[in-house]
Amino acid sequence: MANQDFVGVPSQVDTQALRRGATEIRRLSRGTLFNYIILGAGAILMVVPFIWMVSTSFKPQAETVSFPPRLFPINPTISNYIDVFDRANMGRLYWNTTFVSVIKTIFNIYTSALLGYIFGKFVFRGRDIIFYILLSTWIIPFEVYLIPLYLMTVQVGWANTYTALIVPEIFTVYAMFMFRQFMYTIPTELVDAARIDGAGEWYIFHRIIIPLSKAALFTLIAFYFMWNWNDFLWPLVVIADQDKYVITVGLATFVGEYWSQYGVIMAGASLAIIPILALFIAVQRFIIEGVVLTGLKG
């Protein structure tokens, strides 16, 4: 779970900037064209690996190793994809990964929203101390946990089960922190008004707080689903049974076995990447807007 550091909730629409943008006269200086050329060249470098992956994945083996390199295959084939489904048991990997990621994400987001609400909207003795003690675990590298958590997992008999993949990561500090920040934007009067109307605490949380947190919820769901989907080290250590592999571990094993059959390997990489990239492009508005500098505001 690296890189969780700075993703935030969407900031409010900057109306001032919108007005400025509307009134601003678009000036085309000499520099602008130059800027586009630099950014365009950079963008090409960013996408070349993806394009080359897709290109290779449709080539028969002979074409993958022929010189000079060609972007478009002469005899395009989908046999590489069929091979991956057969040999890497791709359907199974998809199902396993989706199952684990969905359950983990639901737990992550629900517990974080609840704790963020409690730390953000209630006043009780010891609140800040408890919060900062929980938060401090954020800085500890996962490598410190790897060995003891593995031994604990074996001891309670969870080795090689999804329970071991899911349970140690039910609570997550980062989303809890983000939800706490978000709760400050929800007016306390709203909660109090609901209480006066006789609403119970759980009702308020489920029916008022959660719907009001939609913006934070969507961003964090997208990020956590992606992180859970791409998780590698812990599943690599805990799951031994090939039938229970998640997609990252399945792909790593597959690459180890079939390296040098480049078309098939790239078809495998495509199949591992495409679902998550499609999801990302569908919700990218939430995600990119959601990345804000929370670390600096503290």
Binding site: A43, F232, L251, I265, A272, I273
Partner: peptide, 23 residues
């Protein structure tokens, strides 16, 4: 442009490292 520069961030490192190893 932001979307393009962000694509590798969303990609599983296992998958993108496989592509780089091939390239």
């Amino acid at each position: 442009l932001r979307l393009i520069y962000f694509l590798p961030v969303m990609t599983s490192v296992i998958a993108s490292a496989t592509i780089w190893k091939w390239m």
